[in-house]
Amino acid sequence: MCAAVYVLSTITGYVLTSALLLKCPTLLHRRKRETFISKHISHRGGAGENLENTMAAFKHAVELGTDMLELDCHMTKDEQVVVSHDANLRRSSGIDGKICNMSYSELPPYLGKLGVTFQRECFCEGGEDKRIPLLRDVFEAFPNTPVNIDIKINNDTLIKKVSELVIKYDREHLTVWGNASNQIVKKCYKENPRIPVLFSFPRVLQLLGLFYTGLLPFVPLKEQFLEIPMPSIITKLRDPNKLTRTQRFIAWLADTLLMRKALFDHLTARGIQVYIWVLNDEEDFQRAFDLGATGVMTDFPTKLKDFMDRNSISNPQ
């Protein structure tokens, strides 16, 4: 009987302590210093309004007032860091060749019309700017704009060169980098721990495990940005009538587990920003902000800005 009472009291104490620390995490952890806060994030520069990952897209987004540019990096044969999502140029340029096998001068221009990945049956037709830019072009053109860098390949030289560029342009306080791969994120952190990193996919799973077991408030976190999809948008990316029952269930389960206000509130209280991608509809913008997300990543920066203006969602200072 005494043993049962002891176990019960121990469990009760743990639950109460966990609940307290979930609400007040700074009792145990020092809040991470936020050198910038991003509510409005332009995915690939705004792939629904200009050709993705081009200087024209980035310029449009920055002039609009975006808080952050999201982009992707690869490396050419002559070790130039370029801004491009795909390793192979077939989709973007119509050329069946890999960026890593070409020098920068050999890279073909983008096609004049590209599909918008996160908007079903949507295409973007660009203007004159079809050039694949260098990462340094972005840093030079927008010295005060935070940039979210997805390191697309597990390449030590690429990671090192991105770090060198960040240091050269004095952007360690304006940059976040990473990838869904835990191996890439570990290499990024090892190369330059002063540049904040994203949660990798395995670390997101660990984060959820810690949250649902009540252990999260007790565990230190090195990452400063949680960047996750809103699983429910799958019905907007694919024809809902073509989704199987299993696919619908998986999307519902993932959405239920990931989209948790208590989790987002705890992380933001610890100075960890939460970005939800890639949202292109106003109902999804509203849901993300209602859940407590720090920022929304979109292909349509003008649409997101108009939504934020109408709903008095202020940009961070």
Rank of each mutant, 00 (worst) to 15 (best):
M1F: 02
C2M: 14
V5L: 15
S9H: 04
V15W: 11
L16M: 14
A19Q: 15
K23E: 12
C24N: 14
C24K: 13
T26Y: 07
T26Q: 12
L28Q: 07
R31A: 07
F36S: 09
F36N: 09
I37T: 15
K39R: 15
H40D: 10
I41H: 06
I41Q: 03
S42H: 10
G45Y: 10
G46A: 03
N50Y: 02
N53V: 00
A56T: 07
A57Q: 08
F58P: 01
A61N: 09
A61W: 05
E63P: 00
E63M: 02
E63Q: 14
G65Y: 04
T66C: 14
M68S: 07
D72F: 11
D72Y: 10
T76M: 06
V83N: 05
A87Y: 11
N88I: 12
R90H: 13
R90G: 06
N101S: 15
M102F: 15
M102V: 03
M102S: 13
S103Y: 12
E106Q: 15
E106A: 10
V116A: 11
T117I: 08
G126H: 04
L135I: 13
R136H: 05
R136A: 00
N154V: 00
N155L: 01
K161A: 07
E164H: 00
K168I: 06
D170Y: 09
H173L: 09
H173N: 13
G178W: 07
K190A: 05
P193T: 13
G209T: 11
F211A: 14
Y212V: 07
F225S: 08
L226G: 05
I233W: 02
T235Q: 06
K236Q: 08
R248A: 01
W252C: 04
T256K: 10
T256Y: 08
D265F: 04
L267I: 09
V278H: 13
E282F: 00
F285Y: 15
F289D: 05
D290L: 05
L291N: 07
G295M: 09
P301L: 04
L304Y: 06
L304V: 05
L304H: 03
K305G: 00
S312G: 01
Q317N: 08
